[in-house]
Amino acid sequence: MNETQTFQLDGEDIPFAPGQSIMQAATAHGAYIPHLCWHPDFAAHGSCKLCTVKVNGRFGSSCTMAAQAGMSVENRTAELDDKRRTLLQMLFVEGNHFCPSCEKSGNCALQATAYELKMMSPHFDMFYPDRPVDASHPDVLLDFNRCIMCSLCVTASAEVDGKNIFYMGGRGLLGRRVHVSSESGRLGDTNFALSDRAASICPVGVILPKRRGFAVPIGERKYDKAPISAQVKERV
């Protein structure tokens, strides 16, 4: 007997393999669960909490919860999308996200997810933190104003590039930040390269290639073409 196991996501049967998380199984099936810090190539980080779902009535992160046969998972309900919108608003006010002047605009997962969840305003009072920009590297610009603390650069640099250029440090709202592995703290003093996986992993506009801004016209950028929720199947 080799029957496929399934669980229900918003009433739809989702098959899964043992060991898969709810997120992995849903994504493999082409179902969209909003997320920012999760990436299919890496182990779950579980920090952004956008992927919070309700499993048998209890909240949990779908990227870290193992799929189990017969579980009933709520995903795109008004209640959960409302919470996700609030989380997005938190991310928008804690950093400096000025989309009109950001090269990542149109290709940014944070922005696209906010469109998907119909975030019309940041709602909360803005923090306008003073965060650094690092232009020391010849090919790559770091603008931490846009960092959402997802750690994807840390993981990619460690696990794919084998370089350990980045590490999450600090504590709390003002303290938490990405450290660059050099005594000066500058990217230019590391062996980071534009060809590193970490150079292209950032879901927002922190790690950007120099001399390549605004290359794609408005209307043809990644998320101009289709909402982020409609692009899950492409990735399968």
């Binding site: 920090s47 991310l91 603390m149 709202l173």
Partner: peptide, 8 residues
């Protein structure tokens, strides 16, 4: 500072 809801 790890997760969004608590950090912010």
């Amino acid at each position: 500072g790890f997760c969004t809801p608590c950090r912010v």
